[in-house]
Amino acid sequence: MEDNQENLEGSRSRLLESENDDNQSDYSNVSSDSQILENQGSVTGTIQKQLKYFSRRLSQLGLEGEAEVPSEVVRLQDPPLATSRILQRLPEATNKVVEKTQKEQLHNSNLDEKINIKFQPIGNIPVLLPSVCKISSNQKFSVILAFLKKRLKLKFVYCYINNSFAPNPHQIVGELWEQFKVKDELIVSYCGSVAFG
C-alpha cells in the first residue's frame, strides 16, 4: 500500500516537472495519468477517489476557471512638440473641454474592464491551458502576442482573429472584442508559422 502511494506521488511529481518543462505534453500527460490511475484503481478502490485526484490536479495546474493575461502599463504618447503648440492657440473654453475629455479618457482606461479571449491552436503548436483567458480591454494586441510567445516559449507566434486575419498589433483588444466577439469571447487562433497568408 505504501509502495503504491509512493508510486502515485512519484508519478505526480514527474508529471508536474514534465509539464513545467514542456507545455507540449499537456494532453499526453493527462491521458498517461489516467492510465496510471486505472492501475491504481484496483488498490485505491473507488472512482470517487479518482475524481478527487483529478480535481486536485486541476487546481494544482490552474486548469479550472480562467487565467489572466498580464497587463502592461498603457503609455499615452505625447504629440510632436510643434503640433502640441496648437493647444496654446485654442480658445480657453476649448482647452477646458479638451482637458475634461482627456480626464474622462484616462478614467475610462483605468476602469480595467476585463474581456475573455479564447485561444485556439493551429497545427503542431502547444495547447495553451486554460484556453480562455481574461485581459484588460484597454491593452494593445501586441500584449497578447508577447504573452503567447512567453507562455509557449516560442520566438515567433502568428495570431489570427476568427481564423481570418492578423490584426494590427497596435489595436486595442477591447475594440477587437467589440467588433469580432463570438459568444462574448474574442477567438484568437495561434500558430508557429504563417497559417493564413
Binding site: 504629440p79 502640441s84 496648437i86 493647444l87
Partner: peptide
C-alpha cells in the same frame, strides 16, 4: 493627436 496620441477602431 491632441492632447495625446490615440488610435481607435
Amino acid at each position: 493627436i491632441l492632447p495625446t496620441i490615440c488610435i481607435s477602431n
